[in-house]
């Protein structure tokens, strides 16, 4: 029971500290903005560890975070191989292809108001669909290796980025377009100097949505067949063979990969759209 009380005591103490920080004048500093959520996250881990130990939960059902960490450290080779297969080969390649295709398509259809009005509602609708379901079809078309995962990702990220880019390109105000006309600016000059920069917040919004979708697509597609490596493969076989701590280690990798990928895109966004009201300091 010591574990349970210890965990609960830690929870209470952490909450108290956070409450004090949130009520104190330092709450708007960068440090406080990092410390408070981190402390909260650690609390969750401690609670998890405490509950698992206190009630002696079978590791087949739910391993403690410490056990997961041990497995993680012991199987970095496997984890790295799976990471390369799923994230770098499957998700990243699909993300790059899908994002570029969506971007080019958006710029092409933007020139025609007819096409824009036709494609925008359809794109919006398709972006809300459970596109992951096409995974088995893509595995059938492109084989078991990463190409089929990439294909699923391409389709999944295409529509959110397309819709956001098209909307972003319409963002430039009529007045600013008129200004470009009084300068006698060409279509290309208006696009590069006005409309693309104005569209950037929207484009990044689409890219951020797409980062998560890319990982989801790559992992699900592996449930439908893959070579004997990959995070989705390891998770589905690990669940079957009851090596649950390895599954949790893979989940940790997936979570980390997702967060870092999102973080990188958000970091670039901050650099590119520093001028947007939502990014200003």
């Amino acid at each position: 029971m010591i574990w349970l009380w210890g965990a609960l005591a830690f929870w209470a103490a952490a909450w108290f500290v956070n409450a004090r920080i949130a009520a104190s004048p330092v709450r708007d500093t960068k440090g406080a903005r990092i410390v408070v959520p981190v402390l909260f996250g650690i609390t969750l881990l401690v609670l998890w560890e405490g509950l698992v130990r206190a009630f002696a939960v079978s590791p087949v059902i739910l391993p403690a975070p410490s056990a997961v960490a041990q497995t993680f450290a012991a199987s970095t080779t496997i984890l790295w191989e799976d990471f390369r297969q799923t994230v770098i080969k499957g998700a990243m390649s699909g993300f790059a292809i899908g994002a570029s295709a969506a971007f080019v398509t958006a710029i092409l259809i933007d020139r025609s108001s007819f096409l824009t009005r036709g494609l925008l509602p359809i794109g919006n609708f398709v972006a809300a669909l459970p596109i992951v379901g096409i995974a088995p079809i893509m595995v059938n078309w492109f084989g078991f290796d990463w190409q089929s995962k990439s294909a699923v990702v391409v389709v999944m990220v295409f529509f959110p980025i397309l819709v956001n880019t098209v909307q972003g390109l319409r963002e430039a105000e009529a007045m600013q377009r008129d200004l470009m006309r009084t300068y006698g600016a060409s279509y290309l000059q208006t696009l590069v100097k006005l409309r693309l920069p104005a569209a950037m917040p929207f484009i990044f919004n689409g890219l951020k949505i797409a980062t998560t979708l890319a990982l989801i697509g790559a992992i699900v597609a592996e449930y439908f067949g893959s070579p004997t490596r990959g995070m989705g493969f390891r998770i589905s076989t690990g669940v079957g063979s009851l090596s649950i701590d390895l599954v949790w280690a893979e989940i940790a990798v997936a979570a980390l990969a997702g967060t870092v990928f999102y973080g990188i895109v958000a970091w670039i966004e901050k650099r590119v759209t520093f001028w947007h009201p939502s990014q200003r300091r």
Partner: peptide, 28 residues
């Protein structure tokens, strides 16, 4: 404010985690 500061970042992070990785686990 405490909830805002401690929960909001995790809410965002929760969405960057590919839930499908967790799905088989939740089922088990």
């Amino acid at each position: 404010r405490v909830v805002d500061m401690s929960l909001m970042p995790w809410a965002i992070i929760s969405q960057t985690i590919p839930i499908v990785a967790l799905a088989p686990m939740i089922i088990v």
